[in-house]
Computed example of a mutant assay.
Amino acid sequence: MVAEELEKRRTRRVERHAAVRERQARIDAAEKQYTEAWTGTKVADNDLAAEIAVLQQRIEEARSRTAAQIAEYRRHQALAAAAIRREGCNVEEVADILDVSQKEARQLLSEARSLHRAEADAVEPRADEVAAEPVPAANRATAPRQELTAGRELDAADHASEPVHNELDSTRAPAARVSIDSSPRSVEAGTARQWQAPAAR
């Protein structure tokens, strides 16, 4: 009887141990599955971040390239507006020819003048550069000089388009001074000074 009872206890203990081992094996398998999935998630996130970085770099390059192209096209637009302006057209006519607003036409002309000045400044050497290394006149570039001349012509055209009444005012100013100088009081004062001059000597 005692031997049978001990055998039963031993059997139950083995069964319990086997059940614990099976349970632990299932837990280990589930934990392994979770860990593999977690690792895969992290790898996918890293791959996504790397792909996004590449795409962002391409986007920035595309934006920079497009901005440079637009700036160059804008430069050509400004130079075209300046060329029309130098043909004697006023701002309103430039705007009408280019089918833009007068504000946009003025902006284009202003940008053209800035371009001319910048190119002229790029040609003109600084004082310290001239003192350090004189540049022969024969080696100076002529094309930027032409741009500077074009800018000056553009400025002259702007000054020539000022309202006419300013010119009329400038022509009337000397006449007003003549009328003041030729007033009777001025004549009398001048005559008195002429009579008094010999006495003073």
Results as ranks from 00 to 15, higher is better:
Met1Phe: 13
Val2Ile: 09
Glu4Trp: 03
Leu6Thr: 05
Thr11Val: 03
Arg12Lys: 11
Arg13Leu: 10
Arg21Glu: 06
Arg21Ile: 15
Glu22Ile: 08
Ala25Trp: 15
Arg26Pro: 02
Ile27Trp: 10
Asp28Met: 11
Thr35Gly: 04
Glu36Ile: 11
Glu36Leu: 13
Glu36Pro: 05
Ala37Phe: 10
Trp38Glu: 14
Trp38Gly: 02
Thr39Gln: 12
Gly40Asp: 12
Gly40Arg: 07
Lys42Tyr: 15
Lys42Cys: 11
Ala44Ile: 03
Asn46Asp: 15
Asn46Ala: 10
Asp47Ser: 06
Asp47Cys: 03
Glu51Asn: 10
Gln57Glu: 10
Arg58Tyr: 02
Ile59Asp: 11
Ile59His: 12
Glu60Gly: 05
Ala62Tyr: 05
Arg63Phe: 06
Ser64His: 12
Arg65Tyr: 05
Thr66Met: 04
Ala67Arg: 07
Ala67Ser: 15
Ala67Trp: 02
Ala68Lys: 04
Ala71Tyr: 00
Ala71Leu: 02
Glu72Gly: 04
Glu72Ser: 15
Tyr73Met: 07
Arg74Ile: 02
Arg75Phe: 06
Arg75Thr: 14
His76Ser: 04
Ala81Lys: 00
Ala81Val: 01
Ala83Leu: 12
Ala83Tyr: 02
Arg86Glu: 03
Arg86Gly: 01
Arg86Pro: 00
Glu87Thr: 08
Leu98Pro: 00
Leu98Trp: 01
Leu98Lys: 00
Asp99Gln: 14
Ser101Val: 03
Gln102Thr: 10
Gln102His: 07
Gln102Pro: 03
Ala105Ile: 00
Ala105Ser: 04
Gln107Ile: 07
Gln107Asp: 15
Ser110Gln: 13
Glu111Cys: 05
Ala112Gly: 02
Glu119Val: 02
Ala122Ser: 12
Val123Asp: 11
Glu124Asn: 07
Arg126Thr: 08
Arg126Asn: 12
Arg126Ile: 03
Asp128His: 10
Ala131Arg: 13
Ala131Cys: 03
Ala132Asn: 13
Pro136Cys: 14
Arg140Ile: 13
Arg140Gly: 08
Thr142Phe: 08
Gln146Phe: 11
Glu147Thr: 12
Thr149Phe: 09
Glu153Thr: 07
Leu154Ser: 02
Leu154Ala: 03
Asp155Pro: 09
Ala156Glu: 08
His159Trp: 06
Ala160Lys: 08
Glu162Asp: 08
His165Tyr: 12
Asn166Ile: 14
Asn166Asp: 06
Leu168His: 05
Arg177Thr: 05
Ile180Ser: 14
Ser182Cys: 14
Ser182Gln: 09
Pro184Gly: 06
Ser186Gln: 06
Gly190Ala: 07
Gly190Asp: 15
Ala192Thr: 15
Ala192Ser: 12
Arg193Gly: 05
Gln194His: 10
Trp195Asp: 05
Trp195Ala: 14
Gln196Arg: 03
Pro198Leu: 08
Pro198Gly: 05
Arg201Ile: 02
Arg201Tyr: 05
Arg201Asn: 09
